[in-house]
C-alpha cells in the first residue's frame, strides 16, 4: 500500500538553511547537507528545498546544495523557488533533484507547466500554490486566492480554478500552502486541502499550520497524500520518527524505516 509521506521543508538562502516566520526575522540555521542527513536518519520520506535567495547568484548556489545532498543522501528531493524556465528546471534535475516545484512562474506563464511536463514528465512537475482565504458574499462557500512572489502579491485568481487548470496542463502533484495557517501551529486548513483533494486526481502535499501530531493525522485522513512542515521539525519540537510511529498507530499507511 502506498504510504502517506512526511516531508520536512528546508528554506535555503544563498546556499544556507534559514529559519524565519513569513520571510521576516530570517536567521541562519546551518548547512543544508547536515540538516538533510538528520532528516533522512529520522525517517523523512522526501525533502523539499525552497530557495528564497533574492539574487541570481543566490539561486545558482542552490544547484550546488542539491548536488551535494543528492551525492550523500539517497532520498527523493523536490526543489522550488526562483525557477523561471525549463532551463532552470533542467539544471536542478541534472544536479540530482527528482521533482521541480513551480509557483509564481507558472501563474505568470502557465505554458511553463506544459513545457516542463513535455520534457521531464508530469511526475516531475509539482505546482506550488500559496492560498489565502477570501471573504465570500454568502459567508458559507469557501474561496481562496492565489498569492505569488513568496506570498507578497495577490493575484485575484481563484485557487481551485488555478489548480484545475494547472493539472489540465500536466502538473503531477500539488504543494498547497495555507497562508492563513502558515506559522500559526494551529493545524492544516482541512477545508482547503479537502476541496483540492476532491477537485483533482494528482497527489496532494498539505502545508502550513502543523503544530501537533494530531494535525498530521487530520490532514492525511481527509485526502492529503503527504504533509509538510518546516519550523516544527527544525526546532526539534517534533521528531519525525515519533510522529510516524504515532500515525502508524492510528492505522494510517506509514513507512517506518
Amino acid at each position: 500500500m502506498l504510504a502517506k509521506r512526511i516531508i520536512p521543508c528546508l528554506d535555503i538562502k544563498d546556499g544556507r538553511v534559514v529559519k524565519g516566520i513569513n520571510f521576516v526575522n530570517i536567521r541562519d540555521a546551518g548547512d543544508p547537507v547536515d540538516q538533510a542527513r538528520v532528516y533522512n536518519e529520522e525517517g523523512a520520506d522526501e525533502l523539499v528545498f525552497l530557495d528564497i535567495s533574492a539574487t541570481a547568484f543566490g539561486h545558482e548556489t542552490v544547484v550546488h546544495v542539491v548536488r551535494e545532498v543528492a551525492n550523500q543522501i539517497h532520498i527523493p528531493l523536490t526543489v522550488g523557488g526562483g525557477i523561471r524556465s525549463v532551463e532552470d528546471m533542467r539544471k536542478i534535475l541534472l544536479a540530482g533533484a527528482d521533482k521541480i516545484s513551480i509557483n509564481s512562474a507558472a501563474v505568470l506563464n502557465p505554458e511553463i507547466i506544459k513545457q516542463g511536463c513535455a520534457l521531464f514528465g508530469s511526475q516531475c512537475i509539482v505546482l506550488a500554490v500559496d492560498a489565502r482565504k477570501t471573504q465570500t458574499e454568502d459567508a458559507v462557500t469557501n474561496k481562496w486566492e492565489v498569492f505569488i512572489n513568496g506570498g507578497r502579491k495577490p493575484t485575484g485568481i481563484d485557487v481551485l480554478e488555478w489548480i484545475k487548470q494547472a493539472v489540465d496542463l500536466g502538473a503531477g502533484e500539488i504543494l498547497l500552502t495555507s497562508m492563513d495557517r502558515d506559522g500559526t501551529h494551529s493545524g492544516y486548513d482541512l477545508e482547503l486541502n479537502q476541496a483540492v483533494s476532491e477537485l483533482v486526481n494528482v497527489p496532494l502535499i498539505a502545508s502550513g499550520g502543523a503544530g501537533a501530531m494530531q494535525h498530521f493525522a487530520d490532514v492525511l485522513s481527509i485526502g492529503a497524500d503527504a504533509a509538510l512542515a518546516a519550523s516544527l521539525f527544525h526546532d526539534g519540537q517534533m521528531k519525525i520518527r515519533e510522529l510516524k510511529q504515532y500515525l502508524a498507530k492510528l492505522n494510517l499507511p506509514i513507512r517506518l524505516a
Binding site: 502506498l2 504510504a3 509521506r5 497524500d225 503527504a226
Partner: peptide
Amino acid sequence: KVPHTGWNQLWFRVKALLLQNISPGDYVY
C-alpha cells in the same frame, strides 16, 4: 491518484537474486 508517487511495498512472486536480503513488504520509492 496518478502519478503513483511515494513509498510503496514490494511483494515477491519468485525468489529472485535481485531480492536477496530484502523482505516482502519493504518500501521503495
